[in-house]
């Protein structure tokens, strides 16, 4: 056993593990997502019915593209923590739990990479994919 250094603050032992970090992160992401969700609903209303050209027009505005990227990244962070809690609550076998937690994070990372990639291309007005990939 490695020696654990116990830290005290105001006579109370400070947690040696995660502490309240996850709890704080859940609240912080919620707080961030409240205005961003309202904005996303407004954005959806603007984009709806505009067709392909209308959607591209919307993305040509850099502010729109940037806020959408932030919204999606905050959402992915929030939903990754959310599903993590659900898995930890209901799945008690170590193997299945580890596998699901890993898949959850991989899936969220893939969505994060995909959304940033697509948003940057749309904001820059790049030619439709797979242009630029040698096809």
């Amino acid at each position: 056993m490695s020696q654990v250094r116990k830290a005290f603050r105001k006579g109370v032992k400070v947690s040696e593990r995660h502490g309240a970090g996850e709890w704080t992160a859940e609240r912080l992401s919620s707080l961030l997502l409240v205005p961003l969700t309202v904005w996303a609903l407004w954005a959806a209303f603007q984009i709806a019915g505009g067709g392909y050209e209308g959607a591209l027009d919307w993305f040509s505005n850099r502010v729109n593209a940037s806020i959408l990227a932030v919204t999606l990244l905050a959402t992915l962070w929030h939903m990754n923590m959310g599903l993590k809690v659900i898995v930890e609550d209901y799945i008690h076998t170590d193997g299945a739990k580890g596998l699901l937690l890993g898949l959850n994070t991989l899936f969220c990372l893939a969505l994060a990479a995909g959304s940033v990639f697509f948003i940057v291309r749309l904001a820059l007005g790049s030619a439709p994919l797979p242009a630029g990939f040698g096809f």
């Binding site: 392909y52 959607a55 591209l56 993305f59 999606l72 959402t75 992915l76 939903m79 959310g82 599903l83 659900i86 969505l111 995909g114 959304s115 990639f117 697509f118 948003i119 291309r121 749309l122 790049s126 439709p128 994919l129 797979p130």
Partner: peptide, 21 residues
């Protein structure tokens, strides 16, 4: 919240469809 997990995937699918032309 679980349903919205899937909704986010659909939104990224929408972004992909838009980026593919």
């Amino acid at each position: 919240g679980s349903a919205l997990y899937g909704a986010t995937a659909l939104i990224v699918l929408w972004l992909g469809a838009l980026a593919f032309g």
